[in-house]
Nucleic acid binder design. Structure first.
Length: 237
DNA sequence: AACCAGGACGTGA
DNA sequence: TCACGTCATGGT
């Protein structure tokens, strides 16, 4: 058990506060109420329609900015009302593509959402296995883990570009590490805790957006002491 | 005006 | 297995 992994979590949490993921579009107004002393993850698990919204968001955000995804999801909600599998399936592929256009890759993602909706329709109230999700066309390891972790509250650790970038810069592993290997790095070095995994991934993304970008902005980075990459940047700039 | 954003799939070696 | 090409909008 590498305690550094948990220490970094605490640094991020102290600095940014609890993130309260998954950010539901259909619940944005309620979230605004709770900016003070509110711990959004405690005893909260999403209801059925929210699980589906999370899953849709996980697909739409593939290699695209969350800002654009919020527009796409808003378009969907404005047009079909409640996000249900049947409402998605009732749209034509091209109409669905048109609604989600702002999220990019709209033709592919339209098909992906249809496949996702078909699966959720037969899923009913069951909890899927990770392999079930991976067998759906358009759902890879990161999307599956997002759905499992944030949708179904199962303790899978989500690995994304921000995660491999940050922890490779922190010299824990190489940036081109395989997905499953990176995931087990975290699950091996952290207590098996869904809320922890939810909060940690969200904090990594927040830190990635603020500092650990593709072109890093190391000024004000709270992990600078931990980061060889940051030190190198300081010496060379 | 390139570059990047909370990836996944298909193909050829 | 792996290294690429493809998919595509919107912000900086």
């Amino acid at each position: 058990m590498n305690k550094k992994v948990f220490e970094i979590y605490n640094i991020l949490l102290d600095s940014y506060g609890p993130q309260g993921w998954w950010p539901l579009i259909s619940k944005q107004d309620e979230k605004c109420f709770n900016t003070n002393g509110y711990h959004p993850n405690i005893d909260y698990s999403p209801c059925k329609k929210e699980i589906f919204e999370i899953s849709i968001g996980a697909v739409l955000t593939q290699n695209s900015a969350w800002r654009n995804v919020t527009i796409a999801i808003s378009n969907l909600i404005n047009y079909i009302g409640i996000l249900t599998p049947q409402n998605i399936l009732d749209l034509t592929d091209t109409h669905l593509a048109d609604l989600i256009k702002p999220s990019g890759y709209y033709n592919q993602k339209s098909k992906k959402l249809k496949k996702l909706a078909e699966y959720f329709l037969i899923l009913n109230d069951d909890i899927p296995s990770r392999d079930d999700l991976l067998s759906i066309w358009g759902i890879g390891p990161e999307t599956a883990d997002c759905i499992m972790l944030y949708g179904f509250s199962q303790s899978f650790f989500v690995i994304d570009k921000y995660t491999t970038r940050l922890f490779s810069r922190l010299s824990f592993f190489n940036e081109n590490i395989k997905y499953e290997k990176a995931a087990s790095f975290f699950t091996d070095n952290l207590p098996d805790d869904t809320l922890l995994f939810q909060e940690y991934h969200a904090l990594i993304v927040e830190h990635g957006k603020r500092h650990c970008k593709s072109k890093p902005d190391c000024c004000g980075c709270i992990l600078l002491n931990w980061c060889n990459f940051g030190i190198d940047k300081k010496l060379t700039s």
